[in-house]
Amino acid sequence: MPQPPRVIIVSHGQPSDPDVGEAEIIALAQATAQHLPAAEVRGATLAAKGALETALDGCDAPLIYPFFMSDGWFTKSALPKRLTGTNARQLPPFGLDPDLPAFTTHWLTSVLQTENWRPEDTSLFIAAHGSGRSPRPAEVTQTFAGHLAELRPWGDIRCGFVEQEPFLEQAATRLPSQSICLPFFALKRGHVLEDLPEALTKTNFQGRLLDPFGLHPDLPAFLAKSLARDLP
């Protein structure tokens, strides 16, 4: 019986506590597998020693899905280096999925309806990582923001970053109470737990703070649909 195609969802993980990040990405892979019966779906982080190699073992040509928000250093250098010598095919990262703006707009629309807010009266603050070394992560975030602006008439859309200007605190200053903060992050780790709450507290943010994408209940189905397009 032929082996089903294998998909490996790869995230950065948490170097300070690799087991936590590994458990999160494995859980996401298992949830995605429920919507993708034609494939074997595994999860692995770069931070957990040997996790990616274990996920690759025994498969000739797996699909690698980088669960990253940008095509920066990790997806262009670190991950390909780890895949050297394999027949793995690396897909574009999650943050560049062409259907992500529509998915996000549907999500934001439900938030607006819950709050009884109109988009044209609401500010949208996209909190992202950015980079002090490369312009690419910020470019991806700003392009994403532009797509959201095309899909809904927001009163204001602004981006703030952890590692570059405008920094989170700068961008969040004087946001009205009718605001939504969307973390442009894959999982609820590191910056989402520390830098973002600190910036919002300092600026007395009174709006609605959302979870990062990895915690959205519809994300596994979204990932499965995206991955199905690339299955052999």
Rank of each mutant, 00 (worst) to 15 (best):
G160I: 13
A39T: 08
T32A: 06
F185I: 06
Q170F: 02
G146T: 02
I26S: 13
S177W: 07
G214Q: 05
G13W: 03
A171I: 11
E40C: 08
A221C: 01
W73N: 10
T32Y: 08
P119S: 07
Q113Y: 00
D218F: 02
R118T: 12
A88D: 11
S179F: 07
F222A: 14
P62A: 08
A47M: 02
G13Q: 05
L124K: 07
L196P: 06
G95M: 09
H35M: 02
I9L: 15
P153F: 10
L148H: 05
M1R: 13
F103I: 03
F74A: 01
A55P: 13
A138T: 12
L148S: 04
A33R: 14
R152C: 05
T86Y: 08
L215I: 00
P92R: 07
G214L: 06
I157Q: 03
W73I: 11
P197T: 09
F167A: 12
D71M: 09
L219E: 04
V20M: 05
S131L: 05
P62K: 07
D121E: 11
E115Y: 11
L79H: 14
P62Y: 00
I157T: 11
Q164M: 15
R152V: 06
W107M: 10
F185K: 10
P220W: 00
T45Y: 02
T54P: 13
L168R: 11
G155I: 13
L108C: 08
Y65M: 15
T122E: 02
D17N: 10
D19E: 15
E165V: 12
P93W: 10
E53T: 10
P5N: 00
L63M: 14
R158L: 00
V20F: 10
Q206W: 01
P135F: 12
T75L: 01
P80M: 04
P217Y: 12
L36W: 10
K202A: 14
S134M: 03
P15D: 10
E115C: 15
P220I: 04
A55G: 11
E53K: 14
L108M: 07
A23N: 13
S134R: 04
L83F: 06
L168V: 10
G155P: 01
S226Q: 14
A186S: 15
D71W: 05
A23Q: 15
I9A: 07
N204T: 07
Q142C: 06
Q142V: 02
A78S: 12
A48Q: 14
R136Y: 04
L219P: 05
G50C: 08
S131E: 02
L108K: 11
G21F: 08
F67E: 01
L151T: 04
G160F: 13
D99V: 00
T45K: 06
R174Q: 13
E24V: 14
E22V: 13
A38T: 10
A29M: 04
R158N: 02
